[in-house]
Amino acid sequence: MAAEAHSPLAQFEIQPLGGPIHIGGLDVSFTNSSLWMVIAVAAITAFMLLGTRKQAIVPGRWQSLCEGMYDFVSNMLRDNVGQEGRAYFPFVFSLFMFILFANVLGLLPGAFTVTSHIVVTGAMALFIFVMVTIVGIVRHGLHFFTYFAPQGAPMWLMPLMIPIEIISYAIRPMTLSIRLFANMVAGHVMLAVIGGFAFALGVWAGWLPIAAVTALFGLELLIACLQAYVFTILTCIYLHDAIHLH
């Protein structure tokens, strides 16, 4: 059942901008999703570049914000992964900034939320899963698979523990992607539904849903930042597991 034009799901509809482009049988049409990805990347780059343009020793407000984000991700990586995680800092930082900006920009009225699509979050989560597994296998060789047998567990529990560990490991990309995707979808659907009430109730009672939407918007802003943080910190924790094997 496709969503109708004014259903709360209409905001997730993908519309091609310009004609469809095909390269070697691959559909690479520039859609509104692509547009907001490009906007997010441009916004991040502009934000960081303009914030640090003075390269001041005593930072201004903007530069402090840029350095604060750097420190925030840097500390997160150091606390959760340790010194070995330094090599992944650019990746983790890009990931955090991309999700943060995609989430927050998606909250703008009329904007498209890139991270509300399971393909996007799923691709990111799957990439992280594969990367983390490869890192673990490269660092530890076959010893990596002892990860699935928790140390200190009694031997007779192993037939139970090992499948549980394998499932909980394999399910990671799903939980990671669905968490972000569902948060974004639920938030936007809720905003759209309650915003729709404002039209339905008209002038006399319409302010009530609008007040609710205003409050929910604050919550959604919090969730947008929080989900970026959670996605990043879980990436860090997975990296830690791969590097240190518990």
Binding site: I14, F30, M37
Partner: peptide, 16 residues
Amino acid sequence: YFAPQLVWLVITFLAL
């Protein structure tokens, strides 16, 4: 629209 999203995600994230 899975393919264009994935392609553009790869392009933009790589650029970022």
